[in-house]
Simulated scan of single mutants.
Amino acid sequence: MHDPNCLFCKIIAGRLPSKKVHEDEEIFAFHDIHPWAPVHFLLVPKLHIPSMAQVDAGHAGLLGRMMALAPRLALEQGCNPYPEGGFRIVVNTGGEGGQEIHHLHLHVMGGPRPWLKG
């Protein structure tokens, strides 16, 4: 299921360009166009889920795979290893939560500090 008007659905479908980090049957990852940190990419489910507010128990496997994928991709993209290095995962939900694109996505950010934000 996808939304033909959704920016991230268009990126996943290849209708808009992106700097791809990873793709498999369920997940697409690409660099953020306005990075807040030296490493900043998004993990996006291919299934159109508007936000964390719409997640239910049926999405647990997908979200688990996204969270398990994040550490490997963070290292591949240049984050330094734990414990001195590391990364941050942020999920903005709704207007008051800072969500700008209404397609569930995880921000993965890392690299030497200070960062632009956070």
Rank of each mutant, 00 (worst) to 15 (best):
E26H: 14
H105C: 10
F28H: 11
C9K: 04
H34V: 08
S18L: 03
L104I: 02
L42V: 00
P17G: 01
A74E: 09
K46T: 05
F41W: 15
H2V: 05
H34T: 09
K46L: 04
P112L: 07
H40Y: 00
A70I: 07
I49F: 06
E96N: 11
G61N: 11
P83R: 05
Q99L: 09
H34G: 06
W36V: 11
E100A: 10
Q54S: 12
V55W: 13
P38H: 07
K10E: 12
R113Q: 15
M67Y: 12
E23R: 10
P45Q: 09
G98I: 05
G98E: 06
K19Q: 15
A57M: 09
L116W: 07
A13T: 02
P71N: 03
W36F: 10
G94P: 07
G78M: 08
E96W: 05
I49K: 04
L75S: 14
H48S: 01
H59I: 03
K117G: 10
I89V: 15
K46V: 01
H48N: 04
F87W: 15
L63C: 12
N92T: 00
V44Y: 05
H48Y: 11
Q54L: 08
P50H: 08
F28G: 01
R15Y: 03
M1Y: 09
R88C: 05
G98R: 07
L75M: 14
C79S: 08
W115G: 13
A57H: 11
V21S: 04
D32P: 01
G85E: 05
C79Q: 11
H59V: 00
N80P: 06
M67I: 04
A57L: 13
G86P: 07
H105R: 01
V21D: 10
C6W: 06
H40L: 05
M67T: 08
